[in-house]
Amino acid sequence: MADFAQTLMTTLAVGSLYALIALGYTMVYGILKFINFAHSDIVVLGAWISFTLTRWLFPAVGLDAHNPDSPAPPLWLGASILIAAVVACSLIGFVIERFAYRPLRKAPRLNVLITAIGVSLLLQNLGQLSFMFGPSPQKMPALLSNVELWRLSLPSSGGARNVVIGLVDVMIVGTSAVLMIALEFLVFRTKIGTAMRAVSYDLEASALMGIPVDRIISYTFMLGSALAAAAGFLYALKYPGLNQPAHTTWVLLGLKAFVAAVIGGIGNVRGAVLGGFVIAAVEQFGAYYLSSSYRDVYVFALLIAILLVRPSGLLGSTVREKV
């Protein structure tokens, strides 16, 4: 019982990260119908920009990351770093779309996919240059001390055990929830959101109806990148040992989030959130109850199963190809 509760808590935290990243995949796919391979690299950039800013700002506000007795950083520091990372990544997302994807708007989808892989490789390896983030892993200073919020005593196989719910997990779930509700509002309640849905439904018809398609697509990329940056920031909070930008853990993180988008039904905003939590549950419970070495295998096995049984995902609708 205690194990279950602990795993559930991790699932919620990790699931909201996956959901945030999956939203970016799903929005771009919904509109442009291609997998934005470079999306996971925006997450990486979000995490590393957060790291770089933290390292600069810590001395500026009189903190020492290497001294364990140093006082806990104020909350506004974390918030402003989050906002800075979000703004920076939105701009990068805008630039990528403008210069790499927009010229290929009419090209076969495969070409766009290959370009996206190219952009992904480029971001990874630029990030790894020594004058950028460098080719070695770094330790993110704690922006948030992991205060124990609740301690529950639950029965377990070896007697009662304590389940600790920490501030970091709650912060991750809370921040993600706020962002997701904001996105939901934006997509379903505002003019821009309506335009986005129209473009995703039929790009050419929307253009004929006077919707500024290019601008809407830019917004979509910036929005997706913003969420990815937030996810990167939160990821760095949860897992402070940051791998170098081209490390495979990042590729896997992006892939799993993409799998979440597919499982929820690609193009479907609510599906992406659902998919994020499903993936996290499969991964975390599989890791805990079966074997943790194969956690990635469970996710991909689920992906292949879903694609073969219900290619449109859990919440997606089947689209008949016109012949």
């Binding site: 291609f34 997998i35 989808r109 495969l110 996919l113 896997l252 892939l255 993409f258 799998v259 597919v262 070495s293 194969y294 990635d296 295998v297 991909f300 096995a301 992906l303 292949i304 694609l307 073969l308 290619p311």
Partner: peptide, 28 residues
């Protein structure tokens, strides 16, 4: 086999997933 049902980027992801699964399995 998946190529019979999946096109383009979906197939790319499944084949990619296959390679990554194999990598993880080989590590163990």
């Amino acid at each position: 086999l998946p190529s019979l049902r999946l096109r383009g980027d979906y197939l790319a992801i499944v084949t990619l997933g296959f390679g990554e699964i194999l990598r993880v399995v080989l590590q163990q």
